[in-house]
Design a protein around this nucleic acid. Sequence first.
DNA 1: TATGAATGAGATTTCATTCAT
DNA 2: AATGAATGAAATCTCATTCAT
Lengths: 193, 193, 193, 193
Amino acid sequence: MARREFARSGYVGTTNRRIAEQAGITTGAIYHYFTSKRDVYLAVFEETDRIILTRYQEVTSDALLSFEEMVAQLLEVSSQMNSEDETLAAFLASASVDAHRDPELLPTYLEHDHKMMGFFSQLIDAGVEEGVIHDESRADILDAIRVLTLGLTWYSVRLGDPVAHRRATAATIQAMRGNLFPSRPAGRRRATR
Amino acid sequence: MARREFARSGYVGTTNRRIAEQAGITTGAIYHYFTSKRDVYLAVFEETDRIILTRYQEVTSDALLSFEEMVAQLLEVSSQMNSEDETLAAFLASASVDAHRDPELLPTYLEHDHKMMGFFSQLIDAGVEEGVIHDESRADILDAIRVLTLGLTWYSVRLGDPVAHRRATAATIQAMRGNLFPSRPAGRRRATR
Amino acid sequence: MARREFARSGYVGTTNRRIAEQAGITTGAIYHYFTSKRDVYLAVFEETDRIILTRYQEVTSDALLSFEEMVAQLLEVSSQMNSEDETLAAFLASASVDAHRDPELLPTYLEHDHKMMGFFSQLIDAGVEEGVIHDESRADILDAIRVLTLGLTWYSVRLGDPVAHRRATAATIQAMRGNLFPSRPAGRRRATR
Amino acid sequence: MARREFARSGYVGTTNRRIAEQAGITTGAIYHYFTSKRDVYLAVFEETDRIILTRYQEVTSDALLSFEEMVAQLLEVSSQMNSEDETLAAFLASASVDAHRDPELLPTYLEHDHKMMGFFSQLIDAGVEEGVIHDESRADILDAIRVLTLGLTWYSVRLGDPVAHRRATAATIQAMRGNLFPSRPAGRRRATR
DNA sequence: TATGAATGAGATTTCATTCAT
DNA sequence: AATGAATGAAATCTCATTCAT
């Protein structure tokens, strides 16, 4: 599949020849289905985006889940998808770089990015409503979530090993819960455990 | 400087012509100083590596710093470098992708990666010695640190704004200290709904 | 119709896809009716040739017309055809170029050219018989007619406007009659300043 | 020279390979001097335009010439250039078609066309001032001149023979003077010869 | 008859690299 | 040391043509 090639070699580094070989056709035949290499790339992107967002939507659209459960479910789903098809996360990470190197790829990427932010916002909304998140720390939390998800994505791509990824995810959750690093009381914080 | 070009356009996307233009010479002259474009890239990489690691070393080699102070200092130094020269982090992030796309670039990148791990290990050693970190959670902490630093790097590169980066860094530290997300002893969850 | 496409974009520049689209079929279907794109082109050419020559024949085969009337009729018929279907002249002009660029198109074009010369010869014959044309100026007249018809064709194609074409035709007739440019016996020029 | 190739095979039909072969270099080297094939074409066009217009300017800028002499000189110069370098007229005729087939070539062609019109206008001005041309027939004369020059150009290109071209030019001049075709008095015209 | 997927040859273009000067 | 003209390999893309269905 073209996704694997794009993830491995990037947009510029993936040649039509490779794409065609993977598909068992000639380079000319590509243009029967797509108008350009860019078109192939964007089609792959949109398919990837769709696959991932569908799974995420199943989590966030479940009104019965608490904040805690939602976070757990999203991370769980991420890990699952990673195990099922390693190219999904690899491609998206790769694409986040390629999109910023080619102006014509950027809009599609930003659209995807925007949708992802939507999930995080819904997540935070749930937390605020539930009372476990202070309203004034929304922006900070959004920042932190972005940092954590970016970090997890890149780390897992580098590791290339679902088991290690799962372990790292667990460790990160522990860190987020203040169970890993020493924590000083930052004002009105009650001691947890 | 070539670093800016490589950071912006990647290894494949940066042409010798651009490198030469930025340096105020001709493409032919490049080959008086380097044996190939790859050689230029690796030279840029090694210089970047040296600049960053020198600054980090100044922090970790100060035996008087506590774990807490060391973490703070490292993050502070990262932010400072980011403000002084935005191309450093941008190039390294870019390089982490390009290195994995071209086998001949990988060894140099892995070497750099290894050195970075050394700093984190030293950091953890200090924490264990100080008693603020449990010895058995070393691996988890190393994972978490990698996730957090990767996340911060990519987030800052995307933001492209030192002020926003600093804010995100602060938010991440808060998260790490357990001050942001709700933390509950694992297992003893109240029933939701 | 394919004629419009060939006239507009030329032989090389017109793709089978466009031909098929214009005809409301697929590219593959073209090969049920023609053996090649060249075959399509030549069929268009021959149809165009037939349409035009039929109209011309109606003029020159009318034995009752005087030289003057024949010239007027031919020009009139040219203008009429131009108004009825602008693609006829446009295609022939276009073809006169394309035929000379592709050796396999040339014979068909030359054949058409030869037929056109036949009409001009008949015209001159009528003029000589009528006594309004000197027998020894036959060659010169043939040259002049060719120049004038070529000029009118190309000018009208460029103008793309039947009304302007008609005006230019009238002006050219005036010029041919010596009513436009100053004419003086050759040799006996007055000294100019 | 590239002009010969473009004249013979047209803009689309002339390949970089042919251009390079003619120049004794490889296709890649073309791009050391030009940014695209189109750029090569336009450079050829502009050079051709310059050569021809320089020669024409020498005629029309000579204030001592009468209308009659100017016309004779322009035709003479045209014939001379045609003998010296047959590719000049051949290319311009070819270009008049190619320019209308490719929107990006058109502006340069129209600019050239506009300059040529300038010469004709100057010519007519001289005739009006001299009293040999009626002021109210300016438009008709411009039309007729355009038709005649277009016709001569295309006829000479088809003939491909400077001697025949010269003969055709002479015949056309005779026709213009009313010496060839039978002319009926069109109103106030005095009998000439 | 007709479709449309597919081919394969060839076109334009890019670019790291070389080398005479 | 440095230039910049030139190469040659490879990439993207086009298109007339074929052929299984």
